[in-house]
Design a binder for these strands. Structure first.
Lengths: 167, 167
DNA sequence: GGCCATTTAGTTGTACACAACTGAATTGTG
DNA sequence: CACAATTCAGTTGTGTACAACTAAATGGCC
């Protein structure tokens, strides 16, 4: 109960160096985990001929059906600067088509091709392999996910408030 | 206690769709958290004129002193393909120098310049602002970090074993 | 001592991520 | 109806990541 949540040896107040070291560990851990995940997906998705961000796009389309670029971006938190070239590559690969909406000429509908729909059959094995690579069970993953989502919300809020004040 | 850790409604075994949805949530959450973190760092580091990966490099140098590119890469899990251009930009910014080692001409020592050392004084405020942006307390962050490191280890192991077997 | 495998940075090519911008279509308002 | 503000996709430019490759230096082995 006397625990003070200090970084370091817990008996002295944290120094600037302690804070920098702790900070390094936090941001580094998240960054490293994200890249390690990317490596595993890269290996597993190589068979399917798609990258990890492309897989995320397909997951959304498989679940929600055809969507305009805007909606796709909302699901994935990505803007057109990232999505436009990515979708162009998926189109070149024959997995999606892009068609200007007749209703609203500004909007572009992203539609799965037959090939794109068919790829789902081969993708169903991916989640199991990913989960087994984590060595976590489903509950642990669910819990981790909840914390990460909570973290993301807080960080988004902090960015939108411009800057958290420094003191 | 009858809880089976199934995705979805918990009363039926998981379908392929359930797995794909859960998978989407896991990988998406991690990806989103990582990018949200990046956005916060981007805003906070703008004053210092450096990016988030550049900040990570400086954190290592501030803690460990001058290092050859190889060692730096081991600390950061980054290879020369990423570090070489990044270090070139830090050099252009006047924060580090690169010098061929006299002992081993293959090796390049990365040294902080006076400016690079001085920047640390302005960086000490960064961790507090990051932590406050997360809305997590230090213990929660420590716990999250531990889980992420565990995850990273497992994922690294899985990649190195080539592929986790699929069934 | 000579030669080959290994180590180390760097380069090249591909693919995100994102800020800032462009241009076309649409909407709101007078 | 006219026209300014907004919405939407795309483009441009910068900065990672990372695989695959190159070239120079080193070390081990005969």
């Amino acid at each position: 109960m006397a625990r003070k949540s200090y970084p370091g040896d817990m008996t002295t107040p944290p120094t600037a160096t302690d804070w920098l070291r702790l900070d390094q560990q936090i941001c580094f851990s998240l960054n490293a985990a994200s890249r390690a995940f990317g490596s595993v997906y890269r290996v597993i998705l190589k068979d399917l001929g798609i990258t990890y961000p492309q897989y995320l796009v397909l997951l959304v389309l498989w679940e929600h059906g055809d969507l305009p670029v805007k909606k796709l971006g909302e699901h994935l938190r990505l803007d057109s600067g990232t999505l436009s070239p990515l979708l162009k590559r998926l189109e070149t690969a024959g997995l999606v088509r892009r068609e200007r909406s007749a209703r609203d000429e500004r909007s572009v509908e992203v539609r799965l091709t037959e090939q794109g729909v068919a790829l789902r059959e081969r993708a169903v094995q991916v989640p199991r392999r990913i989960v087994s690579a984590t060595s976590f069970d489903v509950d642990e993953i669910r819990d981790l996910r909840a914390r990460l989502d909570q973290l993301t919300s807080a960080l988004d809020a902090a960015v939108h408030v411009e800057l958290p004040d420094e003191d």
